[in-house]
């Protein structure tokens, strides 16, 4: 089985997207997001494992940040002043790996090794094995403190890079996030953005039936953050939020998303946290993502 990407084998020039005018950029990002979703489904099909629901919900935000806003490329992977993209919801590694492969950090074909014995593409990302991975996440609530440290380092070094941290919503039940939220606001880290993948589902149930998070925007605002609440599956809205004025504060983007976005029978269903689609379902999913 081989991974297929880009219809008619006509790849987009993903490196050029960042320089396009905003409207055009959003349209191109949609195309990239669709490819990432196709890759995620194929990876999970081959591995017969993975976290498909969260991968598909976070895709648009990841793609918008990585291809539309941040200075992230294989050429600058070791540049001390590069922007940092931290996937705190590390179980959605398939989405991150797909983004990195499309950006040229490693061959797209390597995605076929996802979770295979001795693969560099572990079920959770490892910075020492995969260029472009900034943090070894997996246990939840780790990415934001690391992001805060990165944002402090950015100011202290005078290199002024951006740090984007992607968290789940259920993940915000971990207290370490709120410790970090206090530090970020206290230190006025306006170079730090947290994107909450607000799909309202966690592994076992709806967040609001487990340990409710609402009113979530108010929580971040009360901690001293600038807040944007948007449609997190809309690349234009994401672009706007990522580049908005932060008023000297760290920015929390509450990205309202659908878990499983893009595949009708997976969308917004708790059982698809890490369920693996059957071969028939994979075909159906790829048809929907064509």
């Amino acid at each position: 089985m081989t991974i297929s990407v880009w219809p008619d084998n006509k790849p987009l020039d993903v490196a050029a997207i960042r320089d396009l005018p905003e409207g055009e950029r959003a349209e191109q990002l949609k195309l990239v997001a669709k490819q990432v979703r196709r890759l995620v489904v194929q990876m999970i099909d081959i591995a017969r494992a993975g976290h498909i629901g969260g991968d598909l919900s976070v895709t648009d935000a990841l793609v918008t940040a990585a291809f539309g806003v941040l200075n992230i490329s294989p050429e600058t992977a070791d540049d001390p002043g590069r922007d940092r993209l931290i996937l705190s919801k590390g179980h959605c590694a398939a989405a991150l790996y797909s983004v990195l492969a499309l950006r040229g950090f490693f061959p797209v074909d390597d995605l076929e090794t996802f979770m295979k014995p001795l693969s560099k593409l572990n079920g959770h990302p490892n910075r020492l094995k995969v260029k472009g991975v900034e943090a070894n996440t997996g246990p939840l609530g780790h990415g934001l403190p690391i992001g805060v440290g990165s944002a402090v380092a950015s100011k202290l070094s005078g290199k002024n890079w951006q740090t984007f941290v992607f968290t789940g919503d259920g993940e915000l039940q971990e207290g370490s996030n709120w410790e970090a939220a206090m530090t970020a606001a206290h230190r006025k880290l306006d170079n730090l953005v947290v994107i909450v993948d607000r799909n309202r589902l966690q592994q076992g149930a709806r967040t609001e039936d487990t340990a409710s998070l609402d009113p979530l925007a108010d929580k971040w605002a009360s901690f001293g953050w600038e807040v944007a609440e948007i449609d997190g599956n809309d690349t234009a809205a994401l672009l706007k939020a990522f580049t908005q004025n932060r008023n000297g504060k760290p920015l929390a983007v509450i990205a309202n998303t659908l878990k499983g976005k893009g595949v009708s029978f997976i969308e917004d269903r708790v059982e698809w946290h890490h369920k693996v689609p059957s071969k028939e379902q994979v075909e159906l999913a790829l048809k929907e993502l064509a």
């Binding site: 001390p80 403190p145 440290g149 380092a153 070094s157």
Partner: peptide, 24 residues
């Protein structure tokens, strides 16, 4: 160069990792 995060040890060690990532 003294980063006092308050009474928050998990955050403290994570912040240190971010600083190390940033070259410190």
């Amino acid at each position: 160069r003294l980063i006092n995060v308050g009474i928050a040890e998990q955050n403290m060690v994570g912040v240190a990792a971010g600083l190390a990532n940033g070259g410190f």
